[in-house]
Design a protein around this nucleic acid. Structure first.
Lengths: 189, 189
DNA sequence: GCATTGTTGCACACCAGTGTGCAATGACGT
DNA sequence: ACGTCATTGCACACTGGTGTGCAACAATGC
């Protein structure tokens, strides 16, 4: 069934989020299914992880392109990106762990286009003097969005509290002044 | 020999830095020794990792207490900490990967005291209005020093360039205004 | 020469996870 | 009632890493 396949994917995201080293058996039983069934849908562990990653990347890319429309200032675009990303960031936190480890190469490759988009946005902000230039855009974008996921990983992830904090923190490290960062994040001091 | 033991530890830090999932065999051959010899010094893989972590923690704790002397402003103390930490940060980057995974509990426990010290420093800065309060000190300190390691991990780690960038970035996300952050990142102990 | 100590080179048992093969079972629509 | 299809429950082979036991060997110091 397609329904089973989708449930496996959903559950796998959960289980791997808890423990990136979880085995096919763990995922299977968490999905209320037998290990053999998982192999029926995904020939190998890498297939599962790859599918999962593709799902995440396309979703996050959609979020980014939605936030980064023409005419939007880079810092506002970033704030919008984080705000929209937040609801799913916690679910996709496993990606950070997955980049290292066995399938690092594959995952890294799939995330490449998204990384490029982010770096582009940051570069645009640096050119427009709204972002600081103490780091190359490729590195700064990675560190900033790594911070977002780190915050999403950390307990108080649920609610607008976390979203606000993540937006402010990432904007700050991008070089946006605190007053503007707070304003963009949607709240007040 | 004690010399062999030390060499194994040094090399292990290197090898595990490259690949946190490297086996005892990889470490052994990288140290120019046989796998059996490693087990002669460290009864189990966990022993090796634990010893390594203790080494790192004590070294980093020394660096922090050296930078965070009484009378030092919190932001200056943080800048000094990053400056002194930088030379070894790249070597110890494996710790970030080690916190997750098999020995996560153990490692996390060993890092606990250091985390507490860092959180204390950040809390002091927040009380003194030099750090922003958009995140609780325990989280903010982790995210900030995670960013330092992320930058250390990222290629351009060598040289004062990276040290400066890491200091500025972490200070920015702590809420220090850009001008002051740049000034603090320039002056080393 | 002798004893001690660290290292080596096997061999071995063990475990956990991966991936496959195949027959049996059950639900489904027609 | 029939065929189809997903799922199940085993059994199996294979891999890669861990940790141990033991005899042999080399260097060191007495």
């Amino acid at each position: 069934m397609n329904e089973t396949r989708d449930r496996i994917l959903d559950v796998a995201l959960d289980v791997l989020g808890e423990d990136p080293d979880a085995g096919m058996g763990d995922i299977a039983s968490a999905a209320g299914v037998v290990r053999r069934t998982v192999y029926g849908h995904f020939p190998s562990r890498l297939d599962l992880v790859r599918t999962l990653t593709q799902r995440a990347v396309s979703e996050m890319t959609a979020v980014l392109t939605q936030a980064d429309t023409a005419g939007t200032e880079a810092d506002a675009a970033w704030a919008g990106f984080v705000a929209r990303l937040w609801p799913v960031a916690h679910r996709y936190r496993v990606l950070l762990a997955l980049r290292r480890g066995e399938y690092g190469e594959t995952i890294h490759g799939l995330l490449g286009p998204l990384d490029a988009l982010l770096a582009g946005l940051v570069a645009r902000g640096q050119d427009g003097e709204v972002f600081a230039g103490h780091l190359p855009a490729s590195v700064l974008s990675q560190v900033a969005y790594g911070a977002v996921f780190a915050i999403a990983d950390s307990d108080l992830s649920n609610g607008a509290e976390g979203a606000r904090a993540a937006a402010i923190t990432s904007l700050l490290m991008l070089g946006v002044p605190e007053a503007r960062a707070v304003a963009l994040a949607g709240g007040w001091p």
